[in-house]
Nucleic acid binder design. Structure first.
Length: 271
DNA sequence: AGGCAGGCTTTTA
DNA sequence: TAAAAGCCTGCC
């Protein structure tokens, strides 16, 4: 099918924005995207049209929500005043096309536990190894194999050696602990979607190996709390350099997380 | 109590 | 060799 988005929608900027780690770039410039029980090939044809290999029904049932098509990103960008905050204005202009995906909460939690103190290629590699080791093998619509993200039980079935082979380093014990809590029914990433936003950060930081940064990333990228504002080394530098008098969180609420994402991508592009 | 130094795996540049 | 979408532990 073909899809003509009426709002910001740039696959490459989303893929490189550091919120998702399992999109696979294809030779035709498109991407293969595994999500829940499906796997999508999507490609920008260049005429404002995107080619997808799913049915209209599946698009409306699954992918429209995944791409967060009910949120108005151009409207969110338009809230930034060019004169009042020229830095954020430039960042949002430069990174126009980014959206915050509605990703699976469990996958997002494990992914950002794995992300700590590592660069993006290393994160992607570990997640891929984990999916191959513990995820269910499936076939996409082209008959190519892909792996679902492993359940807590799937991760627990791995022995220490198998988990170490995923190159998680000292994070392996954090991943195992989260899987343990989930398997025991003491924690549910999915249920946080129904939890009041104010309680989610403490619920997440209660997990071994989850600090405020990882919890904020899970809130933003896994629970779609668009006001969550992860502060990592890049954002810390930006806040020091561009907002010496303090960053105006209240002004940009409830979309601080979206603006954070523009700034993050913009800064990394300048490197 | 709350802040800070040191350590942690592995990969990449 | 240093840095990388950090966090835990122990010390003060």
């Amino acid at each position: 099918m073909y899809f003509c988005p009426q709002d910001d929608f740039d696959l490459t900027r989303i893929a490189e924005s550091g919120q998702c780690f399992r999109w696979e770039a294809q030779e035709d410039g498109g991407y293969r995207i595994p999500y829940r029980n499906s796997c999508l090939y999507i490609r920008d044809t260049g005429n404002g049209q995107f080619e997808l290999d799913c049915s209209e029904e599946e698009f409306h049932a699954l992918w429209r929500d995944y791409f967060d098509m009910d949120t108005d990103y151009s409207g969110i960008r338009a809230r930034v005043d060019k004169l009042q905050d020229s830095f954020l204005y430039c960042a949002a202009q430069a990174e126009q096309g980014i959206r915050i995906l509605r990703q699976d909460p469990w996958e997002t939690l494990v992914s950002f536990i794995i992300s700590q103190n590592r660069n993006i290629p290393a994160i992607r590699r570990s997640i891929d190894l984990l999916c191959r080791a513990a995820g269910e093998a499936r076939e996409d619509r082209r008959g190519e194999r892909y792996y679902a993200f492993p359940s807590p039980e799937g991760i627990l079935k791995l022995g220490d050696a198998a988990l170490d082979a995923c190159r998680l380093g000292y994070r392996a014990k954090y991943v195992r602990a989260a899987a343990q809590r989930a398997a025991e029914g003491l924690f549910s990433a999915e249920s946080l979607l129904e939890t009041p936003e104010a309680e989610t950060l403490s619920a997440l930081t209660g997990l071994y190996g989850v600090g405020i940064k990882v919890a904020s990333c899970v809130s933003l990228f896994g629970l779609h709390h668009l006001d969550a504002f992860p502060v990592d080394v890049w954002i810390r530098r930006v806040l020091e350099a561009e907002y010496p008098g303090g960053y105006p969180y209240e002004l940009y609420s409830p979309y601080n997380g979206v603006y954070q994402q523009y700034m993050f991508a913009y800064c990394r592009r300048q490197r």
